[in-house]
């Protein structure tokens, strides 16, 4: 592939991400007296802890690529996606992206007291659609999510949904829009086999419409099925970056150790 044919959509240039966690109070600081002592002795940093989640990551993602992010739990995959989406600021380095990447995660909170239908409306508006577009798409989104397959669930509050149903609805909302860069965090792992097939088809469709897709998943199968390139992240550093088959082979042998 010649370099001038490939258009980069996401570039990470030595990106460092540091999380600040407020309220990480240990057991010895739970009483008012110790809180007061902490204030007097100026050791208030005990309440705020920093986590260096991503330590200098560089990569270039191109148009039409689907990239799988793999790595053990807590290796910084989700954090990296959030930073690409611009939801978390980078501490050092930079991340450049074409257009506005959008993140689609399993724990993306919608409003649980509202019906599925209303959540679709709210989610679409939050992605910047016009009310007319939202009206047009609502039915298609609910049909795609398949939550109405067992009765009229779309008009029930989301807190009554099973976790699989909620995840399906979230995926359907985010996938309704044409994104330049779509970031998917474990969403395909939930839902049943039927929905997984449908969502994988949708991911391929989005890619064909010349977007870039990032997929974080612990299911090697879904990475193998949807991505041709994989990045292996371990403790905030890239261990390998290349064709999915090669990277997965390396990853597997590492995990078996």
């Amino acid at each position: 592939m010649a370099d001038n044919e490939r258009v980069p959509t996401v570039i990470a240039d030595d990106a460092h991400i540091i999380y600040k966690i407020v309220g990480a109070i240990g057991t010895n600081q739970a009483s008012p007296l110790s809180a007061f002592k902490r204030l007097l002795t100026k050791t208030n940093s005990a309440n705020v802890r920093e986590v260096h989640a991503v330590k200098g990551v560089s990569f270039v993602a191109y148009k039409g690529e689907a990239i799988g992010l793999i790595g053990s739990n807590g290796s910084g995959k989700s954090t990296l996606l959030r930073a690409v989406a611009g939801l978390l600021p980078v501490q050092r380095g930079a991340i450049y992206a074409a257009g506005q990447p959008s993140l689609l995660g399993v724990n993306a909170a919608l409003m649980n007291d509202l019906s599925g239908e209303r959540n679709v409306e709210l989610g679409c508006l939050a992605m910047g659609m016009s009310p007319g577009e939202v009206k047009e798409r609502t039915k298609a989104i609910i049909d795609f999510s398949g939550i109405n397959e067992r009765g009229d669930f779309a008009s029930l509050p989301m807190r009554t949904y099973s976790s699989g149903m909620a995840a399906r609805l979230r995926f359907s909302i985010a996938a309704a829009k044409q994104h330049d860069v779509l970031l998917i965090d474990e969403a395909l792992a939930t839902g049943d086999a039927k929905f997984r097939r449908r969502s994988e088809a949708r991911v391929r469709e989005l890619r064909a419409q010349a977007g870039t897709v990032f997929l974080v998943s612990h299911s090697e199968q879904s990475i193998r099925d949807t991505c041709e390139r994989a990045i292996w992240l371990e403790s905030g550093l890239i261990r390998a970056d290349g064709p999915t088959a090669d990277v997965l082979k390396e990853y597997e042998s590492y995990m078996k150790k």
Partner: peptide, 29 residues
């Protein structure tokens, strides 16, 4: 780690310039 560095840009253009050339905006601007 060698493979973390600019593995895909064989031309060796600095990433910042590559981003500017293709009009990519820094996320978080």
């Amino acid at each position: 780690m060698p493979e973390t560095a600019v593995a895909d840009t064989a031309t060796g253009v600095p990433l910042k310039e590559l981003a500017a050339r293709h009009g990519l905006a820094s996320s978080g601007r």
